[in-house]
Nucleic acid binder design. Structure first.
Lengths: 165, 165
DNA sequence: CGCATATCAATCGTGCACGAGTTAATCGTT
DNA sequence: AACGATTAACTCGTGCACGATTGATATGCG
């Protein structure tokens, strides 16, 4: 098959379309590369997390709680850049799975505190191998990963600032 | 507020949790960085594309067709790494919007050919400014973007290979 | 105190992404 | 020609992500 599909074709349309020269050819490249990398991570996590019955976003929440138990919905949302309308159903699913408990705060009745159950704490053991698997699957050295992360963090910070102007 | 939530806290849990040393501390970092960058891009595109009534994945499909009109569902899926069960409803929405038409292939009745309508072609003009906006929002130089894209492409290729072993 | 305002969380509706399963058309082999 | 295997597309169900809206609690200010 000679119809070679690469990201260039998908994201580089601006050049062919608007004749703005090679400078704009990269614009969509980077977002498409991020989009595709995210899809690839999602699929990898799906296969790794399927055994323990978590989705990737659920795993991120559990990871937060394993690191420090007892957080409000807002704190979790801040950490993961997610809104209540995403988190509330997700936390309810984790509650249904018996991994966390959701309890109204005594002092401030508006707040819901999310804590690990014994089962939720125990699950950490089964998830131990996952970070190592992910790191190996990237095929990158520690130095490369560190560097790539730093660049992505810069990108993300810029996007958030620029998007709100 | 001293409760500074950063990606480190969300994705670096492996270290504190499993005491495996600094080497595993980065494992989840990179996927989280990609996850957050993707969220940031999605939100940026949402604000930019809201005016012309497209979502980001829809924009990617339109970009493909603007570059070369007349593609099968399979070709679009290959280009975007998406399955039929994602694309079929999406293409139907684009059809409902009057931007594309979906027609069974005469030679091979299994195949559905997707082509731009006049309205779909015309929409390209309104979308012209978007790549430039995105590029500026990244706050990165062309060299930096090019480099970052290359690294992400490598990462993605590795993930796909490693995920299927 | 009393009332406007802000905050926390939840609900509803839409769209993306994928696993699983289905249907219909084509291909390959005999 | 016939029939099993493959391929293209679709449907259904689940979960994530977000805009818009709502409700209930807490805070601030006159």
């Amino acid at each position: 098959m000679s119809d070679q599909q690469n990201p260039r074709e998908a994201a580089g349309a601006a050049n062919a379309a608007t004749q703005q020269g090679p400078d704009t050819e990269l614009d969509d490249f980077i977002c498409f590369a991020v989009y595709e990398s995210n899809l690839a991570f999602n699929n990898l996590y799906r296969s790794l997390l399927g055994d323990i019955g978590l989705t990737y976003p659920q795993y991120l929440v559990m990871t937060l709680l394993w690191r420090r138990d007892g957080r409000t919905v807002r704190e979790i949302g801040d950490a993961l850049s997610l809104e209540y309308n995403t988190l509330t159903p997700m936390l309810k699913r984790l509650e249904t799975l018996g991994l966390v408990s959701r309890v109204r705060d005594e002092q401030d009745q508006r707040v819901v505190n999310v804590t690990l159950t014994a089962e939720g704490t125990a699950l950490q053991k089964k998830a131990q191998a996952i970070p190592q698997c992910i790191a190996e699957a990237t095929g990158l050295s520690l130095t490369e990963l560190k560097d790539l992360k730093a660049r992505l963090d810069t990108l993300r910070a810029n996007l958030r600032n620029g998007g709100q102007e």
